[in-house]
Amino acid sequence: MLKTKEYSRELSLVAAIIIMVIVFSIIEPVYLSGSNLLDIMDQSVINGLLALGITYAIITGGIDLSVGSIFAIVIVVVGDLLVSGLNPVLAIICGVGIGFILGVFNGLLITKLNLQPFIATLGTMSAYRGIAYVITGGWPVLDIPGDFRSIFNSDIFGAFPVSILVLLAFAAVGHIILKYTKLGTYIYAIGGNEEATLLSGVNVNKSKMLAYAISGAGAALAGMVLLARLGSGEPAAGQTYELNAIAAAAIGGASLAGGRGNMIGTLLGAILLSTLKVGLVVVGVDSFWQYIATGAIIVVAAYFEVIQGKLKGMRVGRSNTKAIGVGK
């Protein structure tokens, strides 16, 4: 039941990416080379995995600021495990498990203690970062074994890096959960109207916890991709990555008010951001200007959402946005 109307945002993102590629390649033909396009994809992987995960938290109406710190914990723990000789496949399973558990802990704070997601994950962002430092005593983990690195870094079909497959697979699984499982429906329902969902007999706490667990798992995968790429890991890795991830999700149409967002949009949002970044580098724009361009894209994308909302006539009354409604 694919309707063009339903996916209008995703189609415009694809158009925006294509336009960017065309503009950059006119200015600098090298941009269009196969290796450069792969580079863009490669750059999308880490932010993409983080963003896909965070999208789950955002759809429930929450946020997960701790992804960058979960990312760092997974890097140092998996790094240590590998250096001490653990089988790489087991290490990867451990890594995903750690991300999942740290996410569940976020979920517990948000559901059982009834904390606001922003505050709860602001707290764990700091605490998890601290744990990463404590684990290594502040030192980096060096000399990651080659067999682990080659799992992520090897190419399939000659030129297609495994890390990109990890991104696409995570997006596909995430998409299937959202679209075709009860959990997915519950996650959208919670973001749309938590009270109505609770009164429908849905186990809201469990669904929310799983959403944050998936967010943690995405961060874990991203961490291991970086660990394999660099061959070393440090506890300072991934600082402020949560902001880029939120940006990708927002560009992809995830609403911070909850209830809206999807994997395809977020994936395209991440690709768009790296298309822009790589493009600006190739064309030779000063790195300071890259920040400004990124900011502009986020604002334009958000405004696009507003215009779309207006077209649909779904604007919410202005008077209700600030004051609270009283009188039941």
Binding site: K182, L183, G191, N193, A196, L199, G259
Partner: peptide, 29 residues
């Protein structure tokens, strides 16, 4: 509006929300 239904949901999703087990198998809808 605030307790009865989900505004982003169509009728099928709103009606189904209370007992998704009816049309799901192994969690898949």
């Amino acid at each position: 509006k605030t307790q009865g239904f989900i505004k982003f949901f169509n009728n099928a999703n709103n009606v189904g929300l209370t007992k998704m087990e009816k049309f799901s198998k192994y969690s898949f809808v």
